[in-house]
Design a protein around this nucleic acid. Sequence first.
RNA 1: GGGGGCGUAGCCCAAUCGGUAGAGGCAGGGCGCUUAAACCGCCUUCAGUGAGGGUUCGAAUCCCUCCGCCCCUACCA
Length: 822
Amino acid sequence: MNRPFDVTAVETKWQSRWLDEGTYEVDNDDPRERYYALCMYPYPSGAAHQGHIRNYTFGDVVVRYQTMRGRAVLSPFGFDSFGLPAENAAIKDGSHPRVFTDARIAELKSSVIRMGAVYDWRREVRSHDPEYMRWSQAIFLALFEAGLAYRAEAQVNWCPGCLTVLANEQVLSDGTCERSGDVVVRRFLEQWFFKITDYAEELLDALEGLEWPERVKTMQRNWIGRSEGAEFDLPVLGRGDLAVRVFTTRPDTGFGVTYAVLAPEHPLLEELTTEDQRAAVAEVVERAAVTNEIDRTSSSEAGVGLEKRGAFTGSHVVNPFTGEPVPVYVADYVLVNYGTGAIMAVPGEDQRDYDFARVHGLPVVRTVVPPEGFVGGAYDGDGPHVNSGFLDGLTKGEAIPRAVEFLVERARGARVVHYRLRDWLVSRQRFWGCPIPVVYCERDGVVAVPVDQLPVLAPDDVVMDKTGQSPLATHEGFWRTTCPTCGGPARRETDTMDTFTDSSWYFLRFADPFTPGRPFDPAQAARWMPVDQYIGGIEHAILHLMYARFYMKALVDVGLAEGVAREPFQRLFTQGMIRFHGSKMSKSKGNLVTPEPYLATVGADGLRLFHLFVGPPNDDVDWDDQTDEVIDGCARFIDRFWRLWHFEDVAFHDEESPADRAVRQAVHRTIERVTRDFARWSYNTAVAALMELYNTVSRQARSAEGIARATLDEALDVMVRLLAPMTPHVTAELWEERFPERPSVHAQPWPEADPALLVEESVTMVVQVNGRVRARLAVAPSIDEAAAVAAALRAPAVVAALEGREPSRVVARAPRLVNVIP
RNA sequence: GGGGGCGUAGCCCAAUCGGUAGAGGCAGGGCGCUUAAACCGCCUUCAGUGAGGGUUCGAAUCCCUCCGCCCCUACCA
């Protein structure tokens, strides 16, 4: 491209100046109204890609705009620098993950600076910084002391080849390890958990008050999965007080229970399995143990494979409703960690039970009458109950409380609420993470490392084993230690924390990384929190956002964040994804589009303008063959503005003319439009409005009549301010060139529209006859209905269209429209 | 299987409360500038809103059915 100015020189000049002068540093005692703008903590994967650019463009617009609105804006940046990619890279080339990570951080940091995004770098956070780790560990211990962290056995994906645990995404769809190709098995290991389930109710209820996209809230609600129902006992036939406890949301269908099912991992399974069924049951249990969840779920279609996925145990339980014995099965479609791990099966009203019953020849009893014409197996809707004793004739809503009442009296029943949400498994058998700061002492058991001995740091002299096994587990100098309580020999915990723990409190550290001796001063955090505008990808809709919400609440409750808002992110914006010719952009597909080549041609300003202009920020962007042309178009707009700013080809006249007044009206309407569009995250239309204004101003200024100097000055002054948050370099340069003695455009106030220039003298009123447009009349905006109708009926085209007929009805919406129906 | 989103001009997208389908950009065409081209400036073509039905004086917008694409989630009793 042929630019009218040296883009790179201008951009690097301003980037250096913002850094050197600390333009966007903000002090905690700043007296202005506060605003906390935050983009999600990025994993430092190296040079930024378009997804980053898009994210930080939106964030930077918010920061610069709110600054111009007079607020003290907190705009921090950091790096979620622990994680698997660094560990894998280190294994591959035998280096240390820190070396790899630090290099990637430097690249990403350079990228965000070169796109013109501005931050208070004094507050920078890196997860692997020992000072940050100290407090990550102190928080872990505070949760531990409050009883919110505990140890329990959990099933993990174990790769026998790599001798290590795999994350779900490391297990391929065929159930093998992505690295070694071995078949992954499920194994029980002692693990650390956080009791996020203690907060299930608050996490659900508090969603209501958050200004988040509705779909994200819906996803969180589904994830928490509140389910109301009843628990009760099914006594085992001929076994004294032994009983199978089940959970159901449909106690009203109890008369239709024709069998019961235990999960393959259910503790009573062994005891209830009779000798002759042992082999069949064992087969189901083994199959469930080696089958990953994808397979376990995919074969349920149309009942395929159900024969092998369940078996009779040989025992019976008594249905408390009918008093009849029903068989107990084991089946993998029942999950051990939901409800009670056992169900009453109601094939008449539950499709999974129905499919299973058909395959295993179990009876199906209908207890709810389906509507006329119902086809299919199970009917799970409402209707009058039948075959249900004392519930006959009742609807679902009436029958449920009656059934619960019955179960309370007769089957040790209780009304209960279950959540799908599970406790957060935080242990990772990894090297490149924050070590869990506890030791195991033969005498004292699990002992917390005293806070003054934190952080527990991983040793540097490690060899990243090709197997993927964490070197911490085998590094004797690390794990052999002494008990802080008794001084005796002890073994250090070699697991590290899930990296989601790091991203669950970084926003608090940003608020105050300055106070020594604590993770942050709660009083300072309370003044910045909650984050006013959080910006990130929809892919974090569930896990990160749920964990961070939990951490925030827990930190308040354990006393580390007293007085801080219990919800961390008041307003959330989720940007759309960037695709490449319709498919997902990713490093592994090799279709990442890096910003580098664009910085040299259209500049950071041009690229930023493209991301703002290309479409609604929450829509996906498809990077295709035409994208480069669109980006060039954005740069051309900047160039046009540059030329107009320098009065190229502009003709001036002296007195303000009617045309000037029209231009001024356009200027003030644009202030109004852009301000409103910023508030509703409609940057694409804000840019379009500015392009439109440019066209209006330029056309007048380049016309034979010309433009008054004052009119053009005002237009340019407004445009440069409205553009400043979006294209910060070029606007700063143009401003400084003309007003070298005045503060930067970024320190200027956001313009305000003059209400007098917003009123329209005349608007177009459409006149329809029977819905067809017959005339357009210029009318005063204040015209009343009667006058509008009168004017409409006078219009010659309307008279002609009516052909002398009397209107039977006239709909008037003054001053926009009149519709005459003959 | 469940939940959500999106389908408007050749392309990306506007249309604020149900009221003129077109703001902006890209591509295409023409003219001017130029020795010529690029750049630049001016002008300009192109759809009736995925399909069908309904409500309404009036539907891109609300309702129903279907088609296509995308995202999330997945045996949650």
